[in-house]
Write a protein that binds this DNA or RNA. Structure first.
Length: 577
RNA sequence: GCACCCAUAGCUCAGCUGGAUAGAGCGCUGCCCUCCGAAGGCAGAGGUCGCAAGUUCGAAUCUUGCUGGGUGCGCCA
């Protein structure tokens, strides 16, 4: 149980007591009562808003209620002072022994410190990347990949059961284009002169090996045959090859999905039909005609046609959405609705990580999920903004047509997995992010990756030196030797479990990165005390007892940095090079 | 036209689902250090949280309406 949860429990006990004494009414709603660290440390170690939240219900003033609660908290051994402040906050100062206990807890719990049961074993399906299987991943996919994967790790640490999923769009026109592009490379491999890759085909060289493989397998059997004879075959082969490519790209970032769900299979199995029938039985499907799209210019042609529509407007969407095209095939949305139903059948919560350019489709999918699950399952869509690439301040030029887009593999091979993963989490997902190839590898304080890694490396080097100096890591330490500044670091460390929990519940993994930066900064500050005053160094050769105690503190901080980095999918560096 | 996202220090951004005197890095100013416990340190100035109402004990955070920027809008995927 986290420190804050412990004191929340304590407070609850106090409220129970007041209740049984008849000092406050019995049926108070305590759901908004919080025990938190105050933003301003001068206000103490812990603060609760209980008096303010409950005063109205208890028909009294916040301060009067606070005065009832305060004396009972004062009686608690580990609490050294209780103060009613401001509009009715109750501020608590904890005795140093409470922080020493917490330090021992961190050390004892190790990598499990920060993990919790907040998720109550509920099932969350996180869908991310889901790039079309038509080529290697590029930088645009990279951020969503990292955000999704880190979120999955954070959710798991917070006690959710997580499925990491990739939706493979292998049913649309783009995979036919892929198949035709592969056919072109196949003919090329057989010696045909194909010249420029025509407009509308995929030009990338990555299709050459597929063409060669197809040529090796089938000879010239399909070279001059009509498309109908080879399209399905080539599509299947090309998609499989692209998925393999994508898996390899993801593996570079240490990302491994649990499931790759195929849109084509979904359609073949009749899942889309079934989902639509389900909606139909709820009277949410009808034949209708869409309005002329507002994005069209006046001279653009537009023919109203009758389509099979889903009444998404009943769930807050701007217009009803087609599930079936006029030729009878499914729309993307039709499959997507069925896909989300399938995910919802084995999950309590759905999370999708999408590029911000898909913002327009959020409402319809949420509408479908609500309609199909009768509101049992919620869908949160995290929209991830663009990454702008720079090299020493100069924008990196990219054009898809010219094939000069920066691939994920390029970036990882240039700066490394850890740098990429960390940097992708240094902004809120819905804010655009600048990525400068030069700055992200810079060894300086304004590079958060370096700064956090450096803190961990310092701690490792400290341990190595302590071992050389004969300070025995296994020996018992007298934590009473730690001073207030040192215990202040424990206070910050003790917030880690709350960070993990809030980051999981809010679906915001970037909070871990910011927290680690703060923790690293506090550690470096403490470390720097030793520059002026050698007595304040962590390793103090004239005082092995003190060194032992400080080593314990450093160890705990190192542990938390490691755990936090692990949630981000970043290795903690043992030393800097 | 409509929908979604965004607007916080000169710049780039945090702000822990409504808490107290709004934070960090860069830049700026001042002082210290030139030390392999290296890849600097300490301190300071800097704000009408886009604007205006509302909700309540309390709003950067929630609601509404504006303003300004971004993204998107088809039977595409």
């Amino acid at each position: 149980m986290s420190l804050y949860a412990q004191y929340a429990g304590l407070l609850n006990g106090v409220l129970d007591e007041l209740q049984s004494e008849g000092a406050i009414p019995a049926d108070l709603d305590r759901s908004n009562v919080a025990v938190e660290p105050p933003r301003d440390p001068a206000h103490g170690d812990l603060a609760t808003n209980a008096a303010m939240v409950l005063a109205k219900q208890a028909r009294t003033s916040p301060r009067a209620l606070a005065e009832l609660i305060a004396p009972k908290l004062e009686a608690v051994h580990a609490i050294t002072s209780v103060e009613v402040a401001g509009p009715g906050f109750i501020n608590l100062k904890l005795s140093p022994l409470a922080w020493r206990d917490e330090l021992r807890t961190i050390l004892r719990t190790g990598g499990a410190y920060g993990r919790s049961e907040a998720g109550a074993n509920e099932r969350v399906n996180v869908e991310y990347v889901s790039a079309n299987p038509t080529g290697p991943l590029h930088m645009g996919h990279c951020r969503g990949a990292v955000v999704g994967d880190s979120l999955a790790r954070v959710l798991e640490a917070a006690g959710f059961r997580v499925t990491k999923e990739y939706y493979v769009n292998d049913a649309g026109a783009q995979v036919d284009t892929l198949a035709r592009s592969a056919h072109l490379r196949y003919r090329e491999a057989l010696g045909a002169r194909i010249g420029e890759i025509p407009e509308g085909m995929y030009p990338g060289d990555y299709l050459k090996p597929i063409g060669a493989a197809l040529a090796a397998e089938f000879g010239d059997r399909h070279a001059e045959a009509p498309e109908g004879e080879w399209l399905d075959l080539f599509r299947t082969r090309a998609v499989a090859a692209m998925l393999e490519l994508i898996r390899q790209d993801l593996a570079l970032l240490d990302i491994h999905h649990d499931r790759f769900a195929s849109e084509a299979e979904l359609q073949e199995e009749g899942a889309v039909e079934a989902a639509m029938e389900r909606l139909r039985s709820k009277h949410l499907v009808y034949q209708g005609v869409l309005e002329r799209p507002k994005s069209l210019e006046d001279h653009d042609e537009w023919e109203p046609v009758e389509l099979t529509l889903f009444k998404s407007t009943q769930f807050g969407d701007d217009q009803d959405r087609p599930m079936k095209k006029s030729d009878g095939s499914w729309t993307y949305f039709g499959s997507d609705a069925a896909y989300h139903l399938r995910k919802a059948q084995s999950a309590d919560h759905l999370v999708n990580i999408w590029g911000a350019d898909h913002a327009g489709t959020v409402k319809r999918v949420q509408a479908a999920v609500r309609a199909l699950t009768d509101g049992r399952v919620d869908l949160d869509v995290k929209l991830v903004q663009m990454v702008r690439l720079f090299r020493s301040g100069e924008p990196v030029k990219m054009s898809k047509r010219g094939g000069t887009f920066v691939t994920l593999a390029d970036v990882v091979s240039e700066v490394g997995k850890d740098v990429v993963r960390f940097m992708m989490l240094t902004r809120r997902a819905d804010a655009p992010l600048d990525f400068d190839f030069a700055k992200v590898v810079e060894a300086s304080k304004d590079n958060p990756v370096f700064y956090v890694q450096y803190a961990h490396a310092r701690i490792c080097s400290l341990k190595r030196k302590a071992a050389e100096a004969g300070v025995d890591e296994g020996a018992p330490a007298d934590l009473e030797l730690l001073d207030d500044e040192e215990l202040a670091l424990v206070r910050l460390a003790a917030q880690y479990p709350r960070m993990v929990e809030s980051s999981a519940l809010a679906h915001e993994p970037h909070r871990i990165a910011f927290y680690l930066y703060d923790l690293a900064a506090a550690f470096h500050a403490l470390w720097n005390r030793g520059n002026d005053d050698p007595d304040r160094r962590f390793l103090n050769e004239s005082d092995p007892q003190l060194s032992r105690a400080r080593l314990e503190l450093a160890s705990a901080i190192g542990q938390i940095i490691r755990s936090g980095l692990d949630l981000m999918g970043v290795e903690a560096a043992e030393e800097m090079r």
